[in-house]
Each structure stands twice: as structure tokens, then as C-alpha cells.
């Protein structure tokens, strides 16, 4: 029987987990333990619904509704002095919840604080662009679309950024395998030589430990080169490595291996 592998998440999995193992948690502290953060949270809570908020590793995490994302970030930027958006991306929870988690990592230089604003959206649900507030979101949102297929509304130039325009699939989704799908495997061959060249060029060699004993021309067989296709069931003949060609170079004396001296006496 073939081993069952879940199709919704094809990433590497731990092959053994103890039955009684319980994952520990990174400590979360309440927002009230920090004066600056509790003020910020109060300001956000005044106008918007906050689903959850806590402090983890010195940074405040605020969960909001996805529809409020633009307004909350506007508030954070203009009233709460979070003047830089360091990072913005998505996390793929499609296998578990059918949702993406979007996080906005923000920095206030005057308060020296960082907060992370998070929200959940469904797979096909668009999210409003924050490019009007932070130009840095321009490229981040394009990357998010490229890598996850999250649709961003109100973005001036919604195109793929890292992958080519004619790429299929969104690489960072958990359903996308690390070494790519069929289209990815033949992408460059199809584009340059056409589909009919697939047979000539052959599939990609993804086995990192593979050594083709009969192909000494291409890789890592210095000193054992044989013509391509030659039969070597009895072992390859050794080709002595010479640093100079026969006949020699003008003014340069050829070094013969027979002239070499092996020094055995260490004190010589």
C-alpha cells in the first residue's frame, strides 16, 4: 500500500513525535504590563473591535477584523506614531482553518516600540491595500500576492514580483511542494527550447547524492575521464593529471612526475 500523504500540506514533517509530548508555549503577558502598549491598545479599542491582544517577546500583537485593516493602520501611523511598516506578509492556515493570517509589523521610532497587527481572511477574500499609507507596502503586497495568492484591493500595480509573470501556482502555499510542480520543473526548457525538447534534455536531477558512473565528462571525475558512452564495466582508466600540455610552453620547463622527490626526512 502506498503511504498516505495529506495533499493540503506537503511540507516536511517530523517523522517521529513522542505520544506524550506537549509543545511548550512562548510566554504571553497581558498588555496592561506595559504602559505604552496599553495606551496604544486603548486608542485602537476606542474605535475598532479588537479580537485579542497580548505581548509576546517584547512586542504587542493585536488581532483585528480584516475589514478594519486600513483604518487601524492609519490610526497607528497618524495618532500612535508607528511611522514605519517593517514587514507585511501572510501565513497559510488553509489546511487547518481555510484562512490566511495577515500580519503587519510596525515600528515606532519615537516610542522605540514594535507592534504586530494581525487579521484573518478567507482564501478568496480580498484585503484592502495599505499602500496609500506606507509606500513600503507596495512591494510587500505584491510579494504577498505572488507567494500566497492573496488578492489585494486598491493596489496600483498588482502583478507578480519575484516569480515570472507566466508562472503558475503560488510557491509559499503549503500545498505547493518545495521542488515545485510539473510546470515549474519544465519552466526553463519549455520557455527556451519548447516542449519538444523535454525528451532531449531530460528531467531535472533532484537527487543530491546521485553520481552517474558512466558520465565522467561532466562532473567531479578529474583524472578518470573517458569518452561519453564508453563502456567501463572493468573500471575507468586513470588519466594522469598533467599541469602542462605536451610540447611545453615557451620559456617554461615541463615538470615530470618522475623528477619529483618525496621528502621523508622531516629535518631536511
Amino acid at each position: 500500500m502506498r503511504k498516505y500523504t495529506p495533499k493540503k500540506d506537503v511540507q516536511a514533517k517530523s517523522y517521529y513525535t513522542d505520544r506524550f509530548w506537549v509543545a511548550p508555549q512562548v510566554a504571553k503577558s497581558p498588555v496592561e504590563s506595559d504602559a505604552t502598549f496599553s495606551e496604544d491598545l486603548a486608542a485602537i479599542k476606542e474605535k475598532f473591535e479588537v479580537l485579542d491582544a497580548y505581548i509576546q517577546v517584547d512586542q504587542m500583537v493585536v488581532y483585528i477584523n480584516a475589514k478594519d485593516n486600513f483604518d487601524v493602520i492609519k490610526l497607528a501611523k497618524e495618532d500612535l506614531a508607528y511611522t514605519q511598516m517593517s514587514e507585511l506578509s501572510a501565513i497559510d492556515w488553509l489546511a487547518d482553518k481555510g484562512q490566511f493570517e495577515i500580519f503587519y509589523q510596525m515600528l515606532s521610532m519615537t516610542k522605540r516600540k514594535r507592534i504586530r497587527i494581525k487579521c484573518f481572511i478567507d482564501e478568496q477574500e480580498p484585503i484592502l491595500s495599505v499602500e496609500k499609507l506606507f509606500r513600503s507596502a507596495d512591494w510587500s503586497e505584491r510579494e504577498m500576492y505572488d507567494m500566497y495568492g492573496v488578492i489585494v484591493n486598491g493596489h496600483p500595480f498588482m502583478k507578480r514580483i519575484l516569480m515570472p509573470d507566466d508562472w503558475s501556482g503560488h510557491p509559499l502555499r503549503k500545498t505547493y511542494p518545495l521542488i515545485g510542480d510539473e510546470a515549474a520543473a519544465w519552466y526553463e526548457v519549455d520557455k527556451i527550447f519548447g516542449k519538444e525538447a523535454r525528451d532531449v534534455i531530460g528531467p531535472e536531477i533532484r537527487d543530491t547524492a546521485r553520481i552517474d558512473r558512466y558520465d565522467t565528462e561532466r562532473f567531479s571525475r578529474l583524472g578518470h575521464e573517458v569518452p561519453h558512452g564508453a563502456a567501463i564495466p572493468e573500471g575507468e582508466p586513470k588519466t594522469p593529471l598533467a599541469y602542462q600540455e605536451d610540447g611545453g610552453v615557451f620559456l617554461i620547463k615541463k615538470f615530470h612526475e618522475d623528477d619529483s622527490v618525496i621528502i621523508t626526512d622531516r629535518d631536511r
Binding site: 517530523s14 509530548w21 509543545a23 511548550p24 508555549q25 512562548v26 504571553k28 509576546q56 517577546v57 512586542q59 500583537v61 517593517s86 514587514e87 509589523q105 515600528l107 514594535r114 504586530r116
Partner: peptide, 10 residues
């Protein structure tokens, strides 16, 4: 196996 949680470090 690190604990469950998230971290952003600059």
C-alpha cells in the same frame, strides 16, 4: 522543537 509562538527580531 522550539515552543509554540512567534517572534520578530530586528
Amino acid at each position: 522543537r522550539p515552543p509554540v509562538g512567534e517572534v520578530y527580531v530586528a
